[in-house]
Nucleic acid binder design. Structure first.
Lengths: 337, 337
DNA sequence: GCTGGCACTCGATAGGCTTGAGTGCCAATG
DNA sequence: CATTGGCACTCAAGCCTATCGAGTGCCAGC
């Protein structure tokens, strides 16, 4: 992609920002009024013709103004939307939230997704941390049904992993208690990532229960099981209804409710830093009119989860990027030991 | 409310069912075609004029067909929409879900809300059980931050209650461990409803921690803290957009995301059996165009939670009632010991 | 009490016209 | 040679009008 000269860049920027603000195709007159270019509308028109030829903007129909293409948004995001700070009130809101947030991990992440939705004015997602690095602080087996146990593992970050264990045979109350104690002893203080090798010990009835629970917990680590996902502010999508023609808001909200699908989508997209995916850059057909802005949050330099927003391609990328950046940093700091 | 004679009732029923199916005001000709009345359209017109005078139906404008009023829907629900069974495929889907559902309580309730949304084709809510009657199977204190502990209480139904405990003073790792063990001993085997009296014991550093955790857990029982609420199928609201004029879909979805508000709303509405709230029967201004169908689910004859659907007043009440009834019964059975 | 007939109403649809925002092109200009 | 004012052109949106038809209310007759 060739670089644009300064004036064309300024024109593109004006078109993007004006269109995002007004949702109406932008004409040359509006550009000269908005951007401080000190050239005439005719000159702007010539440049706009070039920009269109190069695929940065498009006309919905002859005799209408220009609208940014996905490529135009891409150039804007890459070259024109330099890092911005959020408004002071938003920054304060975020700071307040995180200083007063003393809830457990899952509640914290859910509330964070709502905060991000509020700040960015778009639907927001938060993917919970991989629990690999977290230390087990307690484990317990609870009977749910005659032949179903529930293995509960309490982690040092306050989150709780639960996994149903279907039993091959009946088990006495006593054996469950023994197995529960033994499992607790096995897991306590370990990191979940270490749970690779099969436990050994006396081969009695309780051992069978321990082994089955162990296997169930192992299976849970399979990524297809899905990381925990929290969604906030889906209502924003409904408010942006006019922005979607090819797909329905209803379908997008449905997509957000399919946590497994969303989680794997986000996992694929995630890069080392702030990532922006614009419209047709998304592989999925139902996201052709959507943009996703996401970033990992880091604890001790390691990415342990993701925050992001989902909105129409016609979104305020500066604000979205600023919001995602701010929240990811604050969340990472919050979770750092 | 006076009762309608048989023919007027049949006409009202035809109007409601036709309008629900087509979303178009229903005229006398359509009624004669749909309902098997063996009277002419003119006769139907006369009756429709009466029904309108009595407030069961209304004309959007002269020379249009009739639309049921909230009162018309109410009469339909009370007298004309006798109990129906769901379609066989839906019944099978529900049965399959519950026989194969071996997940923990919270996951089960979340999945149930999705199932209900699917079966009813409306947004669905499930309010989690009051945990009063459930027995504690384990308890533990985990340090989240230097001055914040997390009290984790595992319940016999597989759900986990978590409560952050803000400490008044620093606490050593050892004291936390002691307090954790003591708390576990105090709570184990008790029902949460029994946690009324303050624990007594040696007055050392650990005792202070136990007391603070105890108080925090007590505070949690305050209903304003909100029962757990699970929402599924909010996307259906977006699909029903045309049905809402006074309020926006966006706002309704936002409402569903405010779990505390929704939970208290549902608590107010809940009756001993199936409850239907139609349009203006709802106090809230933003629900004037919505109907809510809800029912408690029972364990050992006691209502322990709520399931319900939220949709436009123009909804298929028979289907909604059948779905809510079926799911509430199945869920109650599933949770019965 | 029911019915067929009939005049009437009024939203929806379609066509025709005007308006105006916006474009592309061009000749003139510094 | 980039810039500019001018100008002809295009085309969606808005508005008006006419037409259509679904649906009603009323009435006289059975």
């Amino acid at each position: 992609m060739e670089a644009l000269d300064e004036r064309k860049a300024a024109i593109l920027r004006a078109i993007v920002e004006q269109y995002v603000a007004s949702a109406v195709p932008v004409g040359s007159a509006t550009v000269t009024r908005t951007a401080d270019l000190s050239v005439s509308a005719a000159t702007v028109r010539n440049d706009m013709a070039t920009l269109e030829r190069e695929g940065f903007i498009a006309q919905p129909h002859t005799s209408a103004g220009r609208v940014p293409t996905d490529r135009g948004y891409r150039y804007y995001v890459d070259h024109l939307a330099g890092a911005t700070l959020l408004a002071a009130t938003e920054r304060r809101r975020i700071a307040e939230f995180f200083t007063s947030a003393t809830m457990a991990m899952d509640e914290l992440l859910l509330q964070t997704s709502h905060l991000l939705a509020r700040v960015s004015a778009h639907a927001a997602v938060v993917v919970g941390p991989q629990t690999e690095a977290v230390v087990v602080r307690g484990a317990q087996l609870v009977r749910l049904q005659p032949r179903v146990l529930l293995a509960v593992v309490i982690l040092s970050n306050g989150s709780v992993e639960k996994q149903a264990v279907a039993l091959a045979a009946d088990a006495s109350e006593q054996d469950v208690a023994i197995a529960s104690a033994r499992l607790a002893e096995l897991l306590d203080g370990k990191r979940l990532a270490e749970l690779r090798d099969v436990p050994t010990g006396p081969e009695d009835a309780a051992a069978a229960l321990v082994r089955q629970s162990w296997d169930a917990l192992q299976a849970r680590r399979d990524p297809s099981h899905g990381e925990p996902l929290y969604v906030g502010g889906a209502s924003h999508l409904a408010a942006e209804q006019e922005a979607f023609t090819g797909t329905t808001v209803s379908h997008l909200i449905e997509l957000l409710e399919q946590h497994v699908v969303m989680a794997s989508l986000l996992r694929e997209l995630l890069g080392p830093g702030l990532t922006v995916r614009i419209g047709s850059e998304n592989a999925r057909a139902d996201l052709q009119e959507c943009s996703i802005v996401l970033a990992p949050y880091l604890v001790e330099g390691e990415p342990i989860g993701t925050v992001g927003v989902l909105g129409p391609t016609r979104m305020d990328y500066r604000k979205a990027q600023a919001a995602v950046t701010a929240i990811s940093q604050q969340l990472g700091r919050q979770l750092s030991p």
